[in-house]
């Protein structure tokens, strides 16, 4: 009986050890957002201007294939959150929004790329039907995925002002 016991135990341990080996045929790496390439824009603490168009320049990379990305610009008048960067710009005093600017858009990345540099024109209008947009602190939030569904987020603190 002891023999049977020991053999069952060793089979069990063998399976256990075997399962610890890493599965090599799947992609387990996240994509990356590089905000520090030459001419990268915007960077943390940069200023954008209402009524103007700027070009978003960022480098996206992945070990297998990139997926898609999205941009979200929303106000940070209450100093609420989401900066993923260590440095913080000097924030204006906390204020209540009246007509804050909101921008949300999702973008595709051409199939099969491991490297993609954006040169995306984004126009910030000076106002909408309600009136002029509020100046001040905003968050510029980038989300990037790869084909497998791994994702990475970057949140920048920026200012949007009237020139």
């Amino acid at each position: 009986m002891k023999k049977a016991e020991i053999s069952i135990l060793s089979i069990f341990l063998l399976i256990a050890l075997n399962s610890c080996e890493k599965n090599e045929d799947i992609d387990s790496q996240k994509p990356a957002i590089d905000l520090y390439i030459q001419d990268a824009f915007p960077d943390n603490c940069d200023t954008l201007y209402f009524g103007e168009t700027f070009y978003m320049k960022t480098l996206f990379t992945d070990n297998v294939q990139l997926g898609s990305y999205s941009i979200d610009i929303h106000n940070n008048f209450d100093h609420h959150s989401h900066s993923t960067e260590v440095t913080e710009p000097n924030l204006d005093p906390i204020k209540s929004p009246v007509n804050p600017f909101v921008f949300i858009q999702d973008y595709s990345i051409p199939n099969g790329l491991r490297k993609y540099e954006t040169n995306l024109p984004i126009t910030i209008p000076s106002g909408n039907s309600v009136g002029a947009f509020d100046e001040g602190d905003y968050h510029f939030f980038i989300s990037l995925t790869d084909k497998e569904g791994w994702s990475v987020q970057k949140g920048l603190s920026i200012k949007i002002l009237y020139r």
Binding site: G67, S68, Y69, S70, F141, S143, T145, K147, G149
Partner: peptide, 16 residues
């Protein structure tokens, strides 16, 4: 719940 490679503007507010 499968994380896809897509983002959604309208319902997903730009999230994955």
């Amino acid at each position: 719940l499968n994380p896809t490679s897509e983002h959604d503007r309208l319902y997903g507010n730009g999230n994955q």
